[in-house]
């Protein structure tokens, strides 16, 4: 029985979800605003969208550029970041760009992208990348820079080559921080795709949100927003698992 009250048990997770949704339900019934639906209304809205097919249809439109963008970010972001971390010269060339990008209010650039790349697929991918890339790159640089010097010395003392040093020591040692960057980057990617679909042209879930807002179907609108938040959270969690799986066997089962 006491297992139920263990801090990691499913009981506490369910309880916190329950409390959150109840609070939402109450807030909706008060009501805070006529434009704020109750939790139950929102769920009904969600089922209406699922049953008329619009939900999955729109999600497919959103997910494609998001996936491509996230993939590009993971691959190039880590490659850039790691090479900058390993080589001062590449770092000197690249780092300022990413520092500026990270500090800049990048969403302001999104309308500009449309002038260059139109309102299609490419613009959305770019929106995802410019929001996700800087944090991935900068985290990778720092992760590699701060790799344990004693382990690097150990690899050298046993005549490890530079390649072995990078792949067997530096990258596994840097992986927690690189993955922390990836999680933030993926979260940024979600911001990018939603912004793009709201700002560039209403397509995908951006269309669902703006359409239902315009016809005052607040339940559907909130259901869409909730679903994208949950999807983003689940994706971030997936990356956490992936890291442990790939690089950190010692953390498994904890």
């Amino acid at each position: 029985m006491h297992e139920w009250f263990n801090k990691d048990s499913i009981f506490w997770r369910l309880l916190s979800i329950l409390i959150f949704f109840s609070a939402w339900e109450i807030a909706g019934r008060v009501p805070i605003s006529p434009a704020f639906p109750t939790f139950i209304d929102t769920m009904e809205g969600l089922f209406r969208m699922i049953s008329d097919g619009s939900f999955f249809e729109k999600y497919m439109i959103t997910l494609k550029p998001l996936l491509v963008g996230v993939f590009i970010t993971c691959f190039f972001g880590i490659t850039f970041g790691v090479s900058m971390g390993l080589s001062d010269r590449i770092d000197w060339l690249g780092q300022p760009v990413f520092i500026v990008l990270q500090a800049a209010p990048v969403s302001a650039l999104i309308p500009m992208i449309t002038y260059v790349y139109g309102i299609g697929f490419t613009s959305k991918i770019i929106a995802v990348c410019i929001l996700a890339m800087p944090v991935v790159v900068l985290n990778s640089i720092n992760a590699v820079r701060n790799a344990n010097t004693s382990l690097i010395e150990m690899s050298r003392s046993f005549q490890g080559t530079r390649m072995q040093e990078v792949f067997k020591v530096i990258l596994p040692d840097a992986s927690p921080m690189i993955f922390a960057g990836l999680r933030l980057g993926v979260a940024g990617g979600f911001v990018g795709i939603v912004l793009a679909e709201l700002l560039i042209t209403p397509t995908g879930i951006g269309d669902l949100i703006s359409y239902h807002r315009s016809v005052a179907n607040y339940a559907e609108m909130y259901a869409t927003v909730l679903s994208i938040i949950l999807l983003a959270a689940a994706t971030v969690r997936f990356f956490e698992r992936l890291e442990v799986r790939l690089f950190r066997p010692e953390k498994q089962g904890t």
Binding site: S150, L151, M154, R156, S157, F158, Q159, V169, F247, E250
Partner: peptide, 18 residues
């Protein structure tokens, strides 16, 4: 440089945690 005829034991152990 380092060579196969010498091996080093580190003060902080230098073990790979993973």
């Amino acid at each position: 440089g380092p060579g196969p005829e010498r091996a080093f034991v580190f003060q902080d152990f230098a073990l790979m945690p993973w």
